[in-house]
């Protein structure tokens, strides 16, 4: 009943209430944006328990920095930027960690990815996307995820990643070439 009333609330009301320490209001923000964060984090890191931890970190960081949020940008953009930064940091950290033990860090990383779809067809579709994404260079992968899974326009992707529009366009084109090569082998 109480949670239902939070569902009706505007975003800025939820932000204000969260800053004042209302945990239920922040819980509603988590509910609204966890899908978006999951697409970015799991798309980049694979469907693993580590991705869930990073997802939690995203919202904890959001809670800690919520008082600095001035509302100039959308809350979704603010959350997305935190998710992108934490995910890219995690990739760098993992690369460093795995490179201490093996030369092929990327291959080892992929072993942590676990598919969770049920039906055969859905499982196959999901596996194709997982394999394609995990085989891509992270700087192309993030552009592809913003576009393909989040549904952002090229302009929005550029703003989200703090990149010039031209860079995003060239990365998309190079990512498409890379993707064609990867999908041919699958």
């Amino acid at each position: 009943m109480i949670r239902e009333s939070y569902r009706q609330k505007e975003e800025n009301e939820l932000v204000k209430a969260s800053i004042d320490g209302d945990k239920l209001a922040f819980g509603e923000i988590v509910t609204r944006y966890q899908g978006m964060v999951a697409r970015t984090v799991k798309g980049m890191l694979g469907d693993s328990v580590f991705a869930e931890d990073i997802g939690q970190e995203v919202f904890i960081k959001l809670f800690q920095s919520l008082s600095e949020f001035r509302g100039e940008a959308k809350l979704s953009t603010y959350i997305q930027k935190i998710a992108i930064n934490l995910t890219l940091n995690e990739i760098k950290r993992r690369k460093r960690f795995f490179s201490m033990f093996t030369q092929s860090g990327n291959n080892k990383m992929r072993e942590y990815m676990i598919a969770d779809q049920n039906t055969e067809e859905r499982k196959e579709a999901s596996e194709i996307v997982h394999k394609a994404l995990s085989s891509m260079d992270p700087k192309f992968r993030i552009v592809v995820i913003m576009r393909m899974l989040q549904g952002y326009s090229t302009k929005e992707t550029a703003a989200m990643l703090d990149l010039p529009l031209g860079t995003v366009l060239s990365r998309l084109s190079r990512a498409q070439e890379q993707l064609k090569g990867i999908l041919r082998k699958l």
Binding site: R39, D47, G55, Q117, T119, R122, A125, S126
Partner: peptide, 12 residues
């Protein structure tokens, strides 16, 4: 097509 990403049920 089934390509969806979600966290666990008790994520929140």
């Amino acid at each position: 097509a089934g390509i969806s990403y979600n966290f666990s049920f008790e994520f929140r």
